[in-house]
Design a protein around this nucleic acid. Structure first.
Lengths: 106, 106
DNA sequence: TATATGCGCAACTTATCGGTTTCGCAATTT
DNA sequence: AAATTGCGAAACCGATAAGTTGCGCATATA
């Protein structure tokens, strides 16, 4: 199963889980309480997130705490980067147009 | 069909199409030439991308030119934003730790 | 006017997804 | 030691996805 990070964030429940564990590590049961799904469903999502290294786990007794591997999120940021460049240059162009209009008015 | 932008970019072919048409508008056939799929498959992807307003079309005779609606990409950027805040504060914290160590060495 | 080209749409097929149920294992609690 | 709790893994199911094939409609070319 070759899953990548873009597929991982495609599911809305998975995105919600990511946000939920971004700051504090949580157990599958605790996560499941926040949605109306079963622990097993959450567990499956966590497995997918773990597979693409978006999430790390830490065992404490019989509980497993899941937390976000935030550095992995930078991969998405990196992909968006190329488009950010485009919309920033377009903004610059608009800026130039506006300042040209301003000059003409004077 | 409740498709959102995150599902749109989940497919690798779709991501490639997005990059392809980011700068120049292209026809479905021209896009299809860049992959080994049929025009129909590309057409289906374009329909999905159009559905979630990531792509706009312009008819010229019997040809239809597709181009990226770059502003829509900002929605992803907006979602990443919250994580960027986290990794930036963590970097600041690391920075503080490092400067503390530096002081101690003196 | 006949033929070719570019395209979207719909039907169909196979693969995959998200969720549920059931199970077994290990760590607790009684 | 027995019952409970937290968990992952596997089997299963309905829904949806991605791709193919075939069609019809325009526009362009002969």
């Amino acid at each position: 199963m070759r899953r990548d990070i873009f597929q991982a964030i495609a599911d809305p429940t998975r995105r919600a889980i990511i946000i939920l564990i971004a700051l504090h590590a949580m157990t599958p049961n605790a996560i499941a309480e926040n949605f109306n799904t079963t622990r097993q469903a959450v567990s499956k999502h966590l497995r997918i997130l773990t597979e693409c290294e978006l999430v790390k786990q830490e065992q404490k007794g019989r509980e497993i705490y899941y937390s976000l591997e935030i550095d992995k999120m930078k991969e998405i940021d990196k992909w968006i980067e190329q488009f950010r460049k485009i919309w920033e240059t377009r903004f610059d162009q608009l800026d130039q147009v506006l300042s040209t209009i301003k000059k003409q008015k004077k």
